[in-house]
């Protein structure tokens, strides 16, 4: 294998190096790559939105399926533009209120489901040391999140146990992720050494 003669591979490789240069310090190459990524990704995002939203979710249902229900979000979307005009800018609260309402409304039942699932999973169906530790861990962690009691005395000691469990869990999640992140880096190095420089196969 030899040095790539593909113009596009060269672009990808140069941009890769430009981002890595940030590890040394903020510099013109990184700035170039950063501004380019922001510019291109928003251009790409707008195009995707045009295709997936305006065409697929508004134009097609309206014109072909005669689904006039989409006029409601269309109107709500247009109300957002009221922000361009000072005297009617307050109208943009209506779509925000709608969206926040839908979001909070949907989250309530899903929070419940989650709650039930967690309690269900913690029920000690069999008795062993692991399950005892789990029950202690769950309860002490919950005590840590207790807000209306001062964390001193007995409550303070239990919440201390809770935070110990939390730190062990964070450490475990941390350690669990390290190798995955390293393999991302190896992936990029492989691209540079094999696709671009052709040093390794």
């Amino acid at each position: 294998m030899a040095l790539s003669s593909n113009f596009w591979i060269w672009i990808a490789a140069i941009l890769t190096l430009a981002i890595y240069s940030f590890l040394y310090k903020d510099n013109p190459f990184y700035k170039f790559a950063e501004y380019l990524l922001v510019g291109i990704s928003i251009g790409y995002g707008i195009s995707v939105y045009w295709h997936n939203t305006i065409i697929t979710k508004v134009f097609n249902p309206l014109v072909y399926d005669k689904n006039f229900l989409v006029l409601i979000p269309l109107l709500l979307g247009l109300l957002m533009f009221s922000r361009f005009f000072k005297n009617v800018a307050y109208l943009s609260r209506i779509p925000i209120a709608f969206v926040v309402g839908a979001g909070t409304g949907l989250s309530v039942p899903s929070s419940f489901e989650f709650l039930f699932k967690q309690v269900y999973a913690t029920m000690p169906t069999k008795l062993d040391i692991g399950i005892i530790i789990i029950v202690i861990g769950v309860i002490s962690t919950l005590i840590y999140f207790f807000f209306s009691l001062e964390h001193k005395g007995f409550v303070g000691r239990v919440s201390r146990v809770g935070i110990t469990f939390i730190m062990v869990a964070f450490g475990a999640a941390f350690g669990y992720t390290i190798m995955a992140r390293v393999s991302l880096f190896i992936g990029r190095i492989q691209f540079l050494l094999s696709d671009w420089l052709g040093i390794i196969k």
Partner: peptide, 19 residues
């Protein structure tokens, strides 16, 4: 560690989050 203490804290945090 993943199955016992990690799981316990994760559930506790999760319960707190849903509340």
């Amino acid at each position: 560690i993943m199955q016992v203490p990690q799981m316990a804290a994760k559930r506790g945090i999760g319960l707190g989050i849903s509340l």
